[in-house]
Design a protein around this nucleic acid. Sequence first.
DNA 1: CGTATCGGGATGAACGTTCATTCCTATCGG
DNA 2: CCGATAGGAATGAACGTTCATCCCGATACG
Lengths: 200, 200
Amino acid sequence: MNVHSMLPTVTPHEKPDKREAILDAALELFAERGFHGTAVPLVAERAKVGAGTIYRYFESKEALVNALYQREKQALGAAIVDAFPFDSPPRAQFHFFWDRISVYALAHPTELAFLELHHHAPYLDATSRAVEEAVLAPAFVFFQNAIEAQVVKPLDPMLLGALVWGAFTGLVRAAREGRLPLTPESLLRAEECCWEAIRR
Amino acid sequence: MNVHSMLPTVTPHEKPDKREAILDAALELFAERGFHGTAVPLVAERAKVGAGTIYRYFESKEALVNALYQREKQALGAAIVDAFPFDSPPRAQFHFFWDRISVYALAHPTELAFLELHHHAPYLDATSRAVEEAVLAPAFVFFQNAIEAQVVKPLDPMLLGALVWGAFTGLVRAAREGRLPLTPESLLRAEECCWEAIRR
DNA sequence: CGTATCGGGATGAACGTTCATTCCTATCGG
DNA sequence: CCGATAGGAATGAACGTTCATCCCGATACG
């Protein structure tokens, strides 16, 4: 065996994975019409693959939505945590967090809509739940620290998290419904509101 | 025609309306499994009526979910607006509002879950959207007044509304997932947070 | 170097199931 | 008795899933 025989041959261009194409198609459709409202052959059509091809990559429709949920939740988590300023004071950390989810919301509205719509759905499996928990954990730690530093109200971190995330989500939803524009300015104003909601 | 002929006859006790039974059954199932995830015969079984009976009261599954949405949205709106202290200062009005939705959330968790899950769904018709708008309007007026009275930040009333409603919704959702208890105390703390978020 | 053979990914028509809806029969109050 | 109402088996469409077949690049062979 020489080195060349072990490397894949050139594979000139065909590698943009069908698996990814299926996930991308499923993302749009599930975000728009929900899990039960989306027919598998429709996903295949949008992904430009045969209906049967989906079952070469995913065991079932449920396995597909779980794989997608995990991909998107992890991407969101990574977008938030990457380069997190662990040593900055809480207010700066909060700004960092808010800025990151704002950028994410503006760049990936469909992904956010999908995650929101499928949050805690009964067809999500244990792995999806575990990913959910793992992404949630850093926020919990942040609130804990901020409370100990006495800059944030001494309330259940879960309550604080639910308020802030709920408020952000409400904003994004209203924007999606065309009730208000989602601009960097309005997001900054909303950040001030949320900080004043939780600060001591 | 005399007066008696115009009044309904005695109807001794059997009036627990099948229509209501169907709506009640649909409420639980739609809240739990969503619109597309709920089979009509299952609704019939839960309501203890024949499958065909549903179609004596509702033109279609879509008509059923719309009738239910309108019933629940209007009940929520009525619960909030009834006896609203129009002449009180904004802070008292906000407290009244928060108290009412808190009581509603504690007494009608399934109804709230249904409304949240079906919010802005594509199968909701023009009437449902109109009801949605009508229930939203008073909140809009409240924020407008509170801004003019200079006790609330001069931001888009829609943004303020989205933040507060989103925060409340986040709380209720977290409670439903068992992440935190939904007690009168925690709801009061959350109210303070939300007021500080929007107050000038 | 050209041709035959191979193998695994991709396919979409077809399958059995389940769905929303219909319709005919049974029931019941008047 | 009769008209209206309720019931649930029947129905056709649409669903998720399967599988016999196709396709195409790689390899073996003459």
